[in-house]
Every structure is written in structure tokens, then in C-alpha cells.
């Protein structure tokens, strides 16, 4: 019974399930926050899967998602700036809890891999993910106010 796989499965079922439900229903501001959190939850799950399958090469998927996930949210923040201007999303609590979950998963993985370049790679991915999601939620809640034409 692989603990990493269990953690990844719980993260996927609970996290992505909630993100999918959030993006499918409710006002536009909640959908956009749900999309932002879907990448913030999927990336740690991918890292956990790479540890569960004991294949360090899968970490590159986590790297690409940590880099491009927030970029996708920036796309939505910028091109939906007019629609989001009326009631800007306020979900700092949720964003920081999810970032905390991601940080916990990354630290657990770092402890498991032990001090090495692979651990530094995991830390880089964790830093990229958390800063990316913080900036993306900052952009959602009014980062593009001055942008009229998109």
C-alpha cells in the first residue's frame, strides 16, 4: 500500500473534484478562482505520483504545470478583466490554504528524496507554483484594472 499513491489519489479526488464543481457552477468570479486552484492542486498531485511510481522523470510534468498553470489563469484574468471588474473575486483564504497544502506536499517529498539536486528541483517547482498562484489570484482580484483593450 503506497502512501504516496494514496495521498495523490485523495488530492486528486478531493481537490480536483472540488475545483471541477467550482468551475462548473456559480458566478464567474468563483469559476475563475476554481480554475486557478485546479492547477494549484494538480501540480502537487503530479509530484506525489512521480514519487509513488518512483520515476523522477515525471517531475518535469509538475515543472511545466507549475510554470504554465498560473499563465493560463493570467490569460483568463486579462481577457475577462471587464467581466470581473464588477465583482472582483476575493478568495485569499482559499488560495493560501491550497498553497499551504501544496507546500506541505512538497516538503514531504523533499524529506523523502533527501538532500540532493532533485530536492532543489522540487523546491524550485514548489516556489514557482506558490508564487504563480499568489500572483494569479492577485491578478484576478484587480491586477488588470487599467487594461481596457485586453
Amino acid at each position: 500500500m503506497n502512501g504516496w499513491l494514496l495521498a495523490a489519489t485523495v488530492g486528486l479526488a478531493g481537490g480536483l473534484g472540488a475545483a471541477l464543481w467550482g468551475v462548473a457552477t456559480g458566478p464567474l468570479r468563483r469559476r475563475v478562482v476554481a480554475q486557478n486552484l485546479s492547477t494549484a492542486l494538480a501540480c502537487p498531485s503530479l509530484l506525489l505520483l512521480s514519487q509513488a511510481y518512483n520515476r523522477p522523470s515525471y517531475v518535469d510534468l509538475g515543472l511545466v504545470l507549475a510554470l504554465l498553470g498560473p499563465v493560463g489563469t493570467l490569460v483568463f484574468a486579462r481577457l475577462l478583466a471587464d467581466e470581473l471588474a464588477e465583482d472582483p473575486p476575493r478568495a485569499w483564504g482559499l488560495t493560501w490554504t491550497v498553497a499551504g497544502l501544496g507546500a506541505a506536499a512538497v516538503t514531504a517529498l523533499c524529506v523523502a528524496t533527501g538532500p540532493s539536486r532533485a530536492m532543489v528541483k522540487l523546491l524550485v517547482i514548489g516556489a514557482l507554483l506558490i508564487s504563480g498562484n499568489a500572483i494569479a489570484s492577485r491578478a484576478l482580484s484587480g491586477g488588470f484594472r487599467g487594461v481596457r483593450g485586453g
Binding site: L12, L16, V23, R31, A34, T39, A42, F76, L80
Partner: peptide, 17 residues
């Protein structure tokens, strides 16, 4: 279409997983 683009983004992540 705008809401669908959001859902497609989540669908892409889930497919990758």
C-alpha cells in the same frame, strides 16, 4: 464560450493527470 474555456482548461489538466 467564456465559461466553457474555463472548463476546458480544467479538463486539460485532468486529462494530463
Amino acid at each position: 464560450p467564456m465559461r466553457q474555456a474555463l472548463v476546458l482548461s480544467v479538463l486539460g489538466v485532468v486529462l494530463a493527470v
